[in-house]
Simulated assay, not measured.
Amino acid sequence: MAQWYEKKKLEQNFIQLDKPMQNGYNERLNRTYREDILDNYFFDSLEQLKVLSDKWAETYNSKHPDRSMKGLTPNQKH
């Protein structure tokens, strides 16, 4: 990963341990995914998880309004 950042001339910034709100948007997405998918299903295979995850992502991006985007969905914002 560090080599990729160097090749792209990007700077890596890490959040401090025990400070998840330094990356609040990602933490919220992780929580939502965990609650909607990981906490609600038992998986027989990674393929099954991928199918459910893809359906979840499509719904999340097309129908899930976000207060930080004035009630728009991620797809509407673009």
Rank of each mutant, 00 (worst) to 15 (best):
S62A: 07
E27C: 09
L17K: 13
D54Q: 12
K70W: 08
S68E: 09
F43N: 00
R31W: 13
R31H: 09
H64P: 12
D66N: 12
H78L: 14
Q3Y: 00
Q48Y: 01
E11P: 14
L72D: 06
L10Y: 10
N26L: 05
Y60G: 01
L72N: 11
L46S: 05
H78V: 11
T59E: 15
W4E: 15
D36N: 03
P20G: 08
L29E: 06
E58T: 05
R28H: 13
T32F: 12
E11I: 09
E27K: 05
I37L: 12
L17I: 12
T32M: 11
L49S: 06
W56V: 01
W4V: 12
L72W: 03
K77M: 11
K9W: 07
G71P: 00
K7Q: 03
Y41S: 00
N13D: 10
A2I: 04
D44L: 15
L10I: 07
K77V: 15
K77C: 10
N23E: 04
E27N: 01
S62I: 01
R34N: 04
F42N: 12
A57S: 03
G71Q: 03
K55N: 03
I15S: 15
M1W: 03
R34A: 06
K7P: 00
L38T: 08
N30C: 11
Y41R: 05
D54W: 08
Y41K: 01
N26S: 13
Q22N: 13
L72I: 02
R34F: 04
K9V: 14
I15P: 05
P20S: 08
T59Y: 04
L49Q: 05
Q3C: 00
T32S: 15
N40D: 14
R34Y: 04
E35V: 14
K19F: 09
I37S: 07
P74Y: 07
K70C: 07
G24K: 15
M1R: 08
Y33N: 09
F43L: 01
L46C: 03
Y25T: 02
Q3R: 02
F42T: 14
Q22C: 15
M69H: 02
S53I: 07
E58Q: 12
Y5P: 00
E35H: 14
P65N: 05
M1F: 06
G71C: 07
S62K: 00
T73A: 06
H64R: 08
K9C: 11
A2E: 07
S68A: 14
H78Y: 14
L10E: 09
V51M: 06
T32C: 12
F42A: 11
Q12Y: 11
D36E: 13
Q12G: 13
V51I: 13
E27G: 11
Q12A: 09
M21Q: 11
Y5V: 03
N23V: 09
K19E: 07
Q76I: 05
R67F: 08
A2C: 06
D44W: 09
Y5H: 05
P20T: 10
S53Y: 06
M69P: 02
E58L: 02
R34L: 03
D36V: 01
P20F: 11
R31L: 06
Y60M: 02
P74M: 09
T73E: 06
L52M: 06
W56S: 04
